[in-house]
Amino acid sequence: MEQGNGKKLVIGVIGADVHAVGIRILEFAFREAGFDVTNLGVMVSQEEFIGAAIETDADAIIISSLYGHGELDCRGMRDKMNEAGLEGLLLYVGGNIVVGKQDFVDVEKRFHNMGFDRVFPPGTPPETTIECLKKDLGVE
């Protein structure tokens, strides 16, 4: 295991989504990579993500959505973060964030417009996300 890099992540599965396995894997992978992880588990509301990020002074919020309603659940997240004093905090989303097989370029654009810094397509391995995190947070 790498030494802790001092960067703090808040992760969880948003909305009424109960897919519990993927987020555990992400928690484990991020921790192995040296991040300090607060995993909120499944069925996490926007408010919970924000409350946890404030108390833990997080460097990024990472949202997972697998059941297809990600777009609905993520709407307004960035506005709420701004409202809560988390302006500019790094915000990622990934999993199976929309229903079925849609053109991902389009999906990505929609989530960018919603204020997400990075949007990951289905099947993204944890390593990709870790590389992005390190780059965005200036680790190494």
């Binding site: 703090k8 300090d36 607060t38 404030i54 108390e55 833990t56 002074d57 997080a58």
Partner: peptide
């Protein structure tokens, strides 16, 4: 206020 290592 704050978790250990969190908001100070």
């Amino acid at each position: 206020g704050g978790t250990d290592g969190g908001n100070r």
